[in-house]
């Protein structure tokens, strides 16, 4: 029953191959710096894309790798945004610790929610995460004294980065700061995906019943992934707060939860780069389409979504990988 035609690479080396950096990845991150060099007018949009990309990447960790569908992920984005904003309003505007405050707060709430989330699947899970999002959004709305309610949180002030780099009006400091944080979070995610834990998450996504039959503690794995994803979403929210110096209820909206899911599906679920690529395509498309028609721009997003799901089931990144595979084989 064996097949000798497959070239035999030592097993550990074969697994290590999958985790190696590709030239396309290096090119991708170099390209991410381009807005600074060639399109300074779009630095703020680029920053927003990267923040949203980080948010989508955090959703990918639970959806793409563990198969946990969430329609309420904005809860953690918003919690991170508010935690960082409130800390700043109360006198602590140091950006790096602000990120940790936002991430930690979202992570703690995520830890509590993970005990419920890890017990459910499918439609029930979608409803629970949606309900959680609504709960958090309404709690923020009603806590007017703390959050500013529908008026948004005012009085946020971000200190200079490392006590030296001022967050300028052109968004140069903000852009590099966001890019550095998103890249650091990406490195963490990449490491995780190629770790034994990442393999366990893929196992749960592929066949949770079989995971039990090999002795896996599925719920513990899902709880851990959920907390890390909540932390990263919180960091993304905090980044938005620090670079815009305001927080609105929109950070907690259902629309944001739905949008990030759409972005991830566009980019490619479980593809590591799907979140960032999906966010870039979605937000640039929104920017362009809304220029053409500010009222009906979502029509084109809908069309794009259907086209991607029908023709590229693994999203745009999945399609590009497939294309790369074909070209690689054709070139040999």
């Amino acid at each position: 029953m064996s097949d000798a035609s497959v070239p035999a690479k030592p097993p550990a080396e074969f697994l290590a191959d999958g985790a190696r950096w590709r030239w396309a990845e290096i090119a991708f991150w170099l390209a991410a710096t381009l807005p600074y060099f060639v399109a300074q007018d779009y630095l703020q949009l680029a920053g927003q894309v990267l923040i949203t990309g980080l948010f989508a990447m955090s959703l990918d960790l639970i959806l793409g790798y563990a198969g946990v569908v969430s329609l309420g992920h904005a809860a953690f984005f918003g919690l991170g945004a508010y935690a960082c904003g409130v800390a700043s309003k109360w006198g602590w505007g140091e950006p790096i610790t602000g990120l940790l405050i936002g991430g930690a707060f979202a992570g703690i709430v995520g830890y509590g929610a993970s005990f419920i989330v890890s017990r459910f699947k499918g439609l029930a899970l979608i409803m629970i995460t949606l309900g959680l999002n609504q709960l958090v959004a309404e709690a923020a709305n009603s806590a007017h004294g703390l959050t500013g309610g529908a008026d948004g949180l005012q009085g946020v002030h971000t200190w200079d980065l490392l006590g030296y780099f001022h967050f300028d009006l052109y968004g140069v400091t903000a852009f590099w700061y966001i890019l550095a944080v998103v890249f650091a979070c990406f490195l963490l995610t990449r490491r995780m995906v190629h770790s034994p834990f990442g393999l366990a998450l893929r196992g749960i996504r592929e066949n949770s019943t079989r995971m039990v039959a090999i002795g896996a503690a599925n719920r513990a794995h899902i709880r851990k992934a959920f907390v890390i994803a909540a932390f990263m979403a919180g960091v993304a929210g905090a980044l938005l707060t620090e670079t815009t110096e305001t927080v609105s209820l929109e950070t907690l909206s259902f629309q944001r939860s739905a949008d990030v899911l759409v972005m991830l599906i566009l980019g490619g679920v479980g593809q590591l780069y799907g979140g960032v690529v999906g966010a870039a395509i979605y937000m640039v498309a929104r920017d362009r389409f809304s220029d053409v028609n500010p009222q009906y721009w979502y029509f084109w997003i809908g069309l794009l979504l259907i086209a991607v799901v029908v023709f590229l089931p693994n999203g745009i990144v999945g399609g590009l990988k497939k294309l790369g595979g074909y070209l690689g084989r054709a070139g040999r």
């Binding site: 290590a16 770790s195 834990f197 393999l199 366990a200 896996a216 513990a220």
Partner: peptide, 23 residues
């Protein structure tokens, strides 16, 4: 190879490691 390594890692209690490389 991945699937069986996963089962071995689960038995050894190593799947909680999220920063180490599988290889």
């Amino acid at each position: 190879l991945e699937a069986t390594t996963l089962a071995v890692c689960e038995r050894r209690g190593e799947t909680g490691d999220f920063l180490g490389r599988l290889a």
